[in-house]
């Protein structure tokens, strides 16, 4: 089965202490280890103003993680566990492997096309754009 690539963002309440967040990250890690997945990257964006009130809060601590797995059920389990946590007020998982595959394919195609054309100058990006616009993919 192909490896899937997910983005997980969750928002914790603004005054959550560091240990709580570590605990939640630990829960995510633990679930991934159980169900066969891997946390690729963890980023903490810190306290950020929310665009609208969530659970009566105007700010929240954003945490972003990238997860690779071959088992899709891992995500349902993760979301179930995050829902139970009091500190987490919002979460979102997005599946990104198809998008990234498509992006890589397009960029490879673009590079091949650019390499095939004889370059007159050192090909600055605005010069490449009309070429690309002319060859509608």
């Amino acid at each position: 089965m192909e490896e899937r690539y997910y983005d997980l963002i969750f928002i914790a309440r603004p005054a959550t202490p560091e240990e709580e967040i570590k605990k939640i990250l630990g829960v995510v890690e633990h679930t991934c280890a159980e169900k066969g997945g891997k946390v690729e990257k963890t980023e903490q964006w810190g306290t950020r103003k929310l665009a609208y009130r969530v659970a009566k809060h105007r700010e929240g601590i954003y945490v972003h993680q990238e997860i690779r797995t071959t088992h899709g059920e891992l995500i349902a389990e993760l979301e179930r566990r995050l829902r139970v946590q009091d500190a987490v007020i919002k979460y979102q998982t997005v599946r990104l492997d198809e998008d990234l595959k498509r992006q890589k394919k397009l960029s490879l195609k673009r590079e091949k096309r650019a390499a095939r054309r004889p370059r007159r100058t050192a090909a600055p990006p605005p010069a490449a754009a009309p070429e690309q616009a002319a060859a509608t993919s």
Binding site: E43, Q44, W45, G46, T47, L50, A51, Y52, Q92
Partner: peptide, 29 residues
Amino acid sequence: RNIALLPFSGSAAGTQAPRVVAPGAHGAH
């Protein structure tokens, strides 16, 4: 919008690029 980075309705004036902080060096409170 789902993850409250942009509003569903109203001004998006408060949006900022995320300040990435490595976990452990979290002193941004």
